Amino acid sequence: MDRKIRAFLAIVEEGTLTAAAERVALAQPSLTKLLKRLEAELGAPLFERLPRGVVLTPFGERFHERARRIEAEYRFAVEELRALKNGHLPVLNIGAGPLYHMLHIPIVCEALTREFPRTRLNVVAAINRVTMPMLARGELDVVCGELSPEEQIYGVDSIPLMEAEQGIIMRRGHRLADAPMDADHLAGETWVLFQHDDRVLRALERFMGAGRHAFTVAVTTSSHATGLRIVSGSDYLMLGPAQLAPVIEEAGLLVRRPITPIRRFETGVSLRHSARSIPIVARLVELVAASTARQTEHLGVPMP
């Protein structure tokens, strides 16, 4: 890829010329020279110099959109050619949200390691806020989890597979185990939330009447397993995909569906368009689709 564009993107992401120079392994004067050449070619200043760094000018913001696409297309081309030359991927990097990494990905990995023994699988378990930027940067090949219109990325395709909804997780014997799951009965309860997902918190706030029924969030955790352990030893409640009921019930916990849904969301596979023709990626999509279809049929959850 053009060195000037690579330098430009490094400056945008790092915010200072010093940090950007280190990132692209150049002396700062050399980086500055590349930037000046790029600005001369475009005929416009791309950055405004500040005492503690740089910010994009309106010209720079517009060019940034195009530069990111140029960089993405370059990565896609490299990916396609390497897969074509080698006939396989040395490593397949998979991102997965809790519903997928706890229920579907273990089954998929077992099949892929048997069918593609020369490829090592690397699974990153996290929410979209973590995995989608990694997919955009080329650090992940596919992401299995929530599909969100606001997280659309250039060159990334989304394949809808199943609809999920938030359920309420509690320990067996909890005083609310047989109670209606509505805001009146859940008022005053204490919650554990998985990661720092503002969408889930906002949905819970709406469900609780936007302030009419008080509740407390005591713990946020990046580990779904940690959240379940906390709930199992306390009277705390936790939000999690209701479709995870088989795994959660194996841990001795209950999953209750609220009378009025707290949050429904579409889930599936996100992957770079350039990766769709790679055999192991295409097979992963097939396996995940088959696994989610079995669960949908078993639970009677409507497809989106």
Score class of each variant (00 low, 15 high):
87 G>P: 09
50 L>H: 08
92 L>P: 01
64 H>Y: 12
46 L>T: 07
94 I>Y: 12
94 I>E: 09
77 A>G: 04
41 E>S: 12
45 P>G: 08
87 G>F: 14
61 E>T: 07
91 V>T: 09
97 G>A: 15
94 I>D: 10
89 L>H: 02
83 A>G: 05
63 F>S: 07
79 E>Y: 09
95 G>L: 02
91 V>C: 00
84 L>K: 08
46 L>C: 06
94 I>M: 08
82 R>I: 08
88 H>M: 09
88 H>E: 10
92 L>T: 06
96 A>W: 05
70 I>C: 01
89 L>T: 04
66 R>D: 05
75 R>K: 12
52 R>N: 10
67 A>M: 02
40 A>P: 02
88 H>I: 08
67 A>G: 03
87 G>R: 14
68 R>V: 04
51 P>N: 05
39 E>A: 11
89 L>R: 15
46 L>V: 04
72 A>Q: 11
63 F>E: 09
74 Y>W: 15
65 E>G: 01
95 G>M: 06
90 P>I: 05
40 A>Y: 08
93 N>R: 15
70 I>G: 01
68 R>T: 00
57 T>L: 11
42 L>Q: 10
89 L>A: 06
97 G>R: 04
63 F>T: 07
69 R>E: 12
75 R>N: 06
59 F>K: 14
49 R>G: 04
42 L>E: 11
87 G>L: 14
52 R>I: 00
65 E>W: 02
96 A>K: 07
39 E>Q: 15
43 G>R: 13
86 N>S: 14
70 I>K: 02
81 L>G: 00
75 R>Y: 05
57 T>K: 12
63 F>I: 04
79 E>M: 10
88 H>R: 13
50 L>K: 12
87 G>C: 13
44 A>V: 15
55 V>A: 14
57 T>V: 12
66 R>Y: 08
44 A>E: 15
82 R>C: 07
95 G>A: 05
97 G>S: 15
91 V>K: 02
43 G>L: 13
95 G>W: 03
51 P>K: 08
67 A>K: 03
64 H>E: 09
54 V>D: 04
50 L>E: 10
71 E>N: 13
57 T>Y: 10
95 G>S: 03
95 G>H: 03
94 I>P: 03
50 L>Q: 08
49 R>F: 05
76 F>G: 09
59 F>G: 03
83 A>M: 01
47 F>C: 06
77 A>R: 10
42 L>R: 14
90 P>M: 09
81 L>Q: 07
60 G>W: 08
70 I>L: 15
94 I>V: 15
59 F>S: 15
62 R>I: 04
91 V>I: 11
64 H>A: 12
40 A>H: 13
48 E>H: 10
91 V>E: 11
41 E>C: 01
